[in-house]
Design a binder for these strands. Sequence first.
DNA 1: CAAGATTGATTTCTCAATCTTC
DNA 2: GAAGATTGAGAAATCAATCTTG
Lengths: 156, 156
Amino acid sequence: MSGPRWLEENQHSTWVNFLAAATILNRRVEQQLVTDSGLSARQYEVLVMLYSAPGGSLRMTDLIGVGRTTKSGLTYQVGQLEKVGLVRREACATDERGVVATLTDAGWDALRAAAPGHLDLVRELFIDPLTDEQFTALGSALTALVDRLQNQPDGE
Amino acid sequence: MSGPRWLEENQHSTWVNFLAAATILNRRVEQQLVTDSGLSARQYEVLVMLYSAPGGSLRMTDLIGVGRTTKSGLTYQVGQLEKVGLVRREACATDERGVVATLTDAGWDALRAAAPGHLDLVRELFIDPLTDEQFTALGSALTALVDRLQNQPDGE
DNA sequence: CAAGATTGATTTCTCAATCTTC
DNA sequence: GAAGATTGAGAAATCAATCTTG
């Protein structure tokens, strides 16, 4: 009569809370960005990555980053950004196969305009609710998780 | 010359890691479920909620739960589950407006078949990579976040 | 009129397939 | 043949609008 080996109660609630927190935070952040600056969260993330890169330029492959998006997802989003003039796409000089995305002046302006409201919300919903100890511990746990997820992409 | 007030370095990396961990975990879990049992993650969650409810039944409103899905998203997913016979929808006895979803025998079987592989993956990717201390701390941080997100749905 | 639930239009994500260059 | 990037088909999420009953 013993079905599957379910999770222990605290394991289950932690997992459920993780999924819930991630979903709700993603939704709230998305809403705020779209409403206040017309950018989606993914687009904002692309702009930030370009802003942080030397020369405001990055290969598509490098823009994929930490797993927030896939190759085709990125192609789509950069396409959207290019359509509204926030990003420029050019062939890569050293590798004819590659494409380099570059932040335009308008993209720079859009990022600068969007950042304050976005960062306020992140502080309000993600940073301020936690004590310093909680935040630090969360950081360490997330580092361990991301390491695991990146280094053993598949089963074992 | 001072642009927006950016996050501190550790705040930024924690936020980015949170988004990355959530996205990757969601994707990996989704893939495993779809491949091995033909269920999406959202569908699996619905089945678990029904399984945990007395009589295997829940009002649509109650099935929404902790913010993982919205009203119309749920309608869609329960529709899919009903189409393949894992869930049954009936009018609510006490409130003619309401709809009650019930786990069918086939739904029960599908959940029992899908659970072991799913739970193994959750253990592998979310529980085992963390020390007990990390996991406990993560749980406490997530509880604080979810409380915040649920109790102050909007600005203030 | 408010609450419960569904529908429709639009947007975005995912996956497999493709094309080009290394 | 493998890597970099795009495309197209299909699934699924969002929001506003609608319909029905309390």
